[in-house]
């Protein structure tokens, strides 16, 4: 019988015993991964040094209206990302292929015209540095910086990522400020965002949670033009070498700060859509 005392959580102390009791009620060992439990909200954990992963993102943004000149609106964004754990704390991501496909019906013409557009969105580089490992601190904290360029547009997106695991539960919150240069880099737009998620490990490789996203557009830094709030479920499935996550988030509240350009007082359909659906699938390389 070994007598050396182990990790505080497995010492025979009341706290340790309570935690052990919680452990033993858990399902069989799930397969871990560097998976994301949400699709808009990052978690603070970075990749293990030397690990490499390829991610495919598919995002559908759907639903505007005739008041903004876009009936039957749908926008698909496709993104392929290569991620690598440079160190245990620093993960580098390269967005290699980014495309946007947009389609809608313009009601201003008679008869209404079908409009569709396909656009290459350039390349982007993502950096994540874990300042506080949630496994060693009360809360995890990671700094994130992403920059991208497509020839006519560019953006810089810093964010702070917080999060922690509590047994089968895990939460995360992101605070984001995005600076976009549009229209041949002549127009500046700021976007202030907050996202958060809470998820529960259901066992059997599944997690189910809720994700929230607040998006506030700030053109030319002359005051906000719109705000929108999206809420919806997030489902994650993971196996040893891959994971996949799906979020479906309808807009539950929106506001236009300058009049009512979308003829809708409950939602913002000028700068945002009725629903966001994002699916990410990733494979370990």
């Amino acid at each position: 019988m070994h007598t050396t005392k182990l990790n505080p959580c497995i010492k025979p102390t009341p706290l340790g015993l309570a935690l052990l009791a919680a452990w033993t009620t858990l399902s069989p060992l799930p397969v871990p991964a560097t998976e994301r439990l949400f699709t808009y909200t990052y978690e603070p954990e970075t990749m293990i040094q030397g690990a490499t992963e390829i991610e495919q993102w598919v995002t559908l943004r759907a639903g505007k209206n005739s008041a903004v000149g876009k009936d039957n609106y749908a926008r698909w964004d496709l993104r392929t990302e290569l991620e690598h754990g440079v160190t245990d704390r620093y993960t580098l991501g390269l967005y290699l292929l980014q495309f946007k496909a947009e389609s809608f019906e313009d009601p201003a013409t008679s008869p209404p015209t079908d409009v569709s557009e396909f656009e290459w969105k350039g390349v982007a580089l993502e950096n994540r540095y874990m300042l506080l490992n949630p496994a060693e601190h009360a809360i995890g904290l990671t700094a994130y910086l992403e920059g991208g360029y497509s020839g006519t547009e560019a953006f810089l997106e810093p964010k702070l990522i917080l999060g922690q695991r509590h047994g089968d539960w895990k939460w995360a919150a992101n605070f984001i400020y995005e600076n976009e240069w549009e229209d041949n880099l002549s127009e500046v737009v700021g976007i202030v965002e907050g996202t958060a998620g809470l998820s529960r490990d259901l066992g059997g490789n599944w997690s189910l949670g809720l994700e929230v996203r607040s998006r506030n557009k700030w053109p030319d830094y002359s005051g906000f033009s719109s705000s929108a709030l999206f809420v919806g479920p997030a489902v994650n499935y993971r196996k040893e070498r891959f994971w996949a996550t799906l979020t479906v988030m309808p807009q539950v509240w929106g506001y236009n700060y300058h009049g009512n350009p979308d003829d809708n007082t409950a939602l913002d359909l000028k700068d945002n859509e009725r629903v966001l659906i994002r699916f990410i699938v990733a494979f370990d390389l």
Binding site: T4, K5, L6, N7, C9, I10, L19, L20, W23, T24, L26, P28, L29, P30, P32, A33, T34, E45, I48, D88, N133, P134, A135, E136, R165, G167, D168, D201
Partner: peptide, 28 residues
């Protein structure tokens, strides 16, 4: 040894807990 134990606890947290919740070997 105490030094090994300290290293093991740190390693457990850095490499294991970062990806999943802790698991008790006695349950397996």
């Amino acid at each position: 040894s105490p030094a090994e134990l300290k290293r093991a606890v740190k390693l457990d947290r850095q490499k294991c807990w970062r990806c999943h919740k802790p698991h008790d070997p006695r349950s397996y």
